[in-house]
């Protein structure tokens, strides 16, 4: 049976891995290749490299580090941030990434999702969605979230956007629940359940992991295909081998690395 995926997210700024809280105050975590190798050895099922400066500043992803990672890593990885065109995506995929993820550029020009799906197949195309609950009780998408000074609220309800990107050709959706991101109090189960109802492609939960129990809860209660986390893995407060043993004890199918 298909395993539930444990995904380590590495935020990249100027070629280094960084981590912030609630999308701000980033601190240096280390070299990309060293951390990629570390998480692979820990038993992460997949890695996501999110270039947090490329998207808001209109820069392209630097493909040199993508290739360095591809040479040493034997698990799948996705690159997000700064991909605005088929040409940008091709460069990243040819450097060795397995998938590319688009967020702000897809909001600015939804046709990009279709162009990417036509060029590379839906299995390469991940749409990242940053979502926050507004005071009227509606979840809505945000853009430019890599830079707190430029983050903008959009009128688009999150659930409508989830439906739309699947129609356009998204092969996977990463839902980042901004209200719970970085605070380690658990995934936003309510929102993820609502999105799961309308999401027929693989769905990845992001934002809020603080303990092993949070992963079990999001798999059991929101039926997501994968759970993404960064700070709990970087800090070592959740270690992936122990997390997987715990999830297995909770009857959740996970991958065991047999070296």
């Amino acid at each position: 049976m298909l395993s539930r995926r444990i995904i380590a997210c590495l935020d990249v700024r100027d070629g280094r891995v960084v981590k912030g809280v609630r999308f701000r105050d980033h601190v240096d975590m280390g070299d990309i290749v060293d951390l990629a190798r570390y998480y692979r050895d820990q038993g992460a099922d997949e890695l996501v490299f999110y270039d947090i400066t490329a998207s808001p500043h209109g820069r392209r992803v630097d493909c040199a580090w993508v290739e360095r990672v591809a040479r040493i890593i034997d698990i799948p990885f996705c690159v997000a941030g700064g991909i605005r065109s088929v040409a940008d995506a091709r460069a990243v995929l040819h450097a060795g990434a397995d998938k590319i993820s688009v967020n702000t550029p897809a909001l600015q020009r939804p046709g990009l999702v279709s162009e990417l799906a036509d060029a590379f197949g839906v299995q390469c195309v991940v749409v990242g969605i940053d979502s926050l609950l507004d005071q009227d009780g509606q979840w809505r998408v945000r853009q430019f979230t890599g830079d707190v000074a430029r983050t903008r609220a959009l009128p688009m309800p999150t659930l409508d956007w989830v439906v739309e990107v699947q129609r356009l050709g998204a092969g996977e959706i990463v839902l980042n629940c901004m209200g719970s991101d970085g605070v380690r109090e658990g995934y936003d189960i309510g929102q993820l359940r609502a999105v799961r109802e309308v999401c027929h492609v693989p769905l990845i939960a992001s934002g809020g992991a603080g303990a092993s129990e949070h992963f079990a809860a999001v798999f059991h209660q929101a039926d997501v295909d994968g759970a993404l986390a960064a700070s709990v893995f970087h800090s070592g407060s959740v270690e992936i081998p122990a997390l997987k043993r715990y999830l297995q004890s909770q009857d959740i199918e996970v991958r065991h690395d047999r070296n």
Binding site: L2, S3, E172, V201, P202, H220, D251, I252, R255
Partner: peptide, 25 residues
């Protein structure tokens, strides 16, 4: 999603398969 006999113990929560088939199986 069928339960693989090799997977052991009790079933995961009721799951539907999705397309694309993406992940470790």
């Amino acid at each position: 999603l069928a339960r693989s006999p090799a997977a052991g113990s009790a079933p995961d929560t009721a799951r539907r398969s999705r397309v694309p088939h993406m992940g470790w199986n």
